[in-house]
């Protein structure tokens, strides 16, 4: 199979939940974790851009897959899909969607090959190609033979599942690697008493969340004010986070970059410190909360970064109060609970 099974099927992954962690633990134990409906969803990263990100990140036969390392990424789709971040695109038009896109793909692979002589070319597919069932595999196989380099298809659709995490698996499969089931995150640094009396909100994927909850609470004496998981699944990391939250009597929020939900939850939780990745950190910073961005802060530097952020917390407050910082939501909208739009089911 060129495309591994979706994490939703393989790992019971869900991206929408707000409520008791015990209930979700029970669902996973019974093997029937249900995806909730989100009746208001804000756009977030998708599997295609995550696949491209992963192709840049994971080692490829001992080398990094980036343009600097003689790899090229072609986004095989319409011009708008170039936002996914490849090195070039096939810029499909309506004509190509009618008559098939093979010709354009062959031409683009040849163009990229002649222009930069990469050692390998990734062809990342998009919704138009998936809907039309265009034959990408044959083109890649034929040109691998004729050009003498690896032309590797990354079969993403952008619509067959809800979690961008699947993009990681598709990228790995393109390289002949196993789909990533669970990545053990390195421990974040802690300092005894650093966060004593401080309320900390954590918004991260399960593996990272577990590591930072440990660093904040048992390592540095802080109090967990709330947790947003980017997703939940039946891995040990999710189970650990859910058990920790159950022990603290806190609900769990599962959301992939849902700014409105996070804003509401942060308004209620009123944390002293926020720990998250770039997109979520921006949400917290707009509210005047001191932040540690783990996308740019290595785990071993966490304690120092937390101390710095708390030491200069006035900076975040002044940033939020700056005249040029517009309110993103009306006061009325912010009166709703953070999980207001997450429903057990919805009639459409």
């Amino acid at each position: 199979m060129i495309r591994p099974a979706d994490r939703e099927k393989r790992l019971g992954l869900i991206t929408a939940y707000y409520g008791a962690p015990e209930a979700l633990l029970g669902e996973y134990a019974a093997g029937n974790a249900r995806q909730r409906m989100r009746t208001f969803t804000q756009s977030a990263e998708d599997e295609i851009s995550r696949a491209v990100e992963e192709l840049r990140r994971i080692p490829c036969r001992g080398e990094l897959c980036s343009p600097a390392d003689d790899s090229a990424i072609i986004i095989h789709g319409p011009r708008g899909c170039a936002m996914a971040g490849g090195d070039s695109g096939t810029k499909l038009t309506e004509k190509d969607s009618i008559m098939g896109s093979e010709k354009k793909l062959r031409a683009e692979i040849h163009r990229v090959y002649n222009a930069s002589r990469p050692k390998r070319i990734f062809v990342v597919t998009t919704p138009v190609v998936a809907i039309n069932n265009d034959d990408v595999l044959t083109v890649c196989a034929e040109l691998t033979g004729s050009l003498g380099i690896d032309i590797l298809p990354v079969v993403t659709t952008g619509f067959k599942n809800k979690s961008p995490e699947n993009g990681i698996d598709y990228a790995r499969r393109a390289l002949g690697l196993d789909a990533a089931a669970e990545i053990r995150e390195p421990e974040a640094s802690a300092r005894e008493g650093l966060l004593a009396g401080r309320r900390v909100y954590i918004a991260l994927p399960p593996g990272r969340a577990a590591a930072y909850i440990r660093a904040v609470s048992s390592g540095s004496g802080g109090n967990i004010a709330g947790v947003t998981l980017g997703y939940a699944d039946k891995t040990e990391a999710t189970e650990e986070v859910l058990r920790l939250l159950a022990g603290l009597g806190l609900p769990v929020h599962v959301a992939n970059n849902q700014d409105y939900e996070l804003t509401n939850l942060l308004k209620s939780a009123v944390p002293d410190l926020f720990v998250g990745e770039t997109d979520n950190v921006l949400t917290a910073a707009r509210l005047g909360i001191a932040c540690v961005n783990v996308s740019v802060t290595p785990p071993e530097a966490f304690a120092d970064a937390a101390e710095t952020a708390l030491g200069y917390s006035g900076f975040a407050r002044r940033l939020a109060e700056a005249p040029g910082m517009p309110a993103r939501y009306s006061l009325r909208a912010l009166l709703r609970p953070g999980g207001w739009y997450i429903k057990p089911e919805a009639k459409l």
């Binding site: 004509k95 190509d96 969607s97 009618i98 008559m99 098939g100 809907i131 039309n132």
Partner: peptide, 16 residues
């Protein structure tokens, strides 16, 4: 007209 068999999208072709 439209694409050759097994390729593209004939329905979109009719529309176009």
């Amino acid at each position: 007209g439209g694409p050759v068999p097994g390729v593209g999208c004939a329905g979109r072709g009719i529309s176009a």
